[in-house]
Design a protein around this nucleic acid. Structure first.
Lengths: 126, 126
DNA sequence: ATAATATATGAACAGTTATTCATATGTTCA
DNA sequence: TGAACATATGAATAACTGTTCATATATTAT
């Protein structure tokens, strides 16, 4: 992504191609590329969505806020497992919660979450 | 999710709550829950987006179709690694490709992919 | 045919992850 | 204060994942 002396290439039919390398395209995109940091955060975000149990928890919460034991009931996994996964979802900013007495009520953090879930569900139904 | 004889509960302030269990909510949502199969496929889809290298590859491809060695150049990982990750993305239905001579040109499979990436990027920038 | 190029693939290894089990924390009620 | 309930947390382990290395396949040019 630095010197371009001997990298100049002749024109090609569809692409400005040189020995398999589309120099122009690569140079143009190099600056606009997602940063390492952004890529890391985005991948971490999707990692939080990459587990079946967490997906089921989130789909529960699309129906409204819910306490941990209700989620446990609906998803059918142990209390500890639900709690661990809720922490993962919380850390990824996908859910939030409020306390009411002994219970914690979890809910979807914001509209992005619903959008991603809906788009994901659409994608697999094709 | 079957018998409801002795599960009837008295009314509660905000929720129809019984010993921490919101019977009504749980019963109502139980039928509408995402199936195991759907949850599995959705989580597999997001799993394909849960790796930094794959995210960077997809962001490359948002700039247009590209052959493997261009991706390799932009992302800066080995040819083998790119190829392995492209296979994962292909299997998840996130990318497609066409052959032109010796090169394979990969591209984003459909609009859902761009939507999910864009939504993910929005989500982390807050 | 042979060489060169572009890409895919299989095995292997190090690092990561989801669950379980046991226990801790925080809240309410008597 | 102590018991009961709701939830969180740490350690441990089995299963999974991404990269590397070596090699295979496919296409083109000589």
């Amino acid at each position: 992504m630095n010197e371009d002396k001997e990298l100049q290439c002749a024109e090609c039919p569809h692409h400005i191609e040189c020995g398999g390398k589309n120099i122009e395209l690569v140079k143009r995109l190099a600056d606009k590329m997602i940063t390492e940091e952004e890529a890391y955060f985005v991948s971490e975000l999707f990692k939080a969505l990459s587990d079946m149990t967490r997906v089921r928890i989130l789909f529960c919460l699309l129906g409204g806020e819910m306490c941990v034991c209700d989620i446990q009931e609906l998803v059918g996994v142990s209390q500890s497992a639900v709690s661990h996964q809720l922490r993962t979802l919380k850390q990824a900013g996908l859910v939030k919660y409020r306390r009411e007495g002994k219970s914690l009520y979890y809910s979807i953090a914001d509209g992005h979450v619903s959008t991603m879930l809906a788009t994901g569900l659409e994608h697999i139904s094709e």
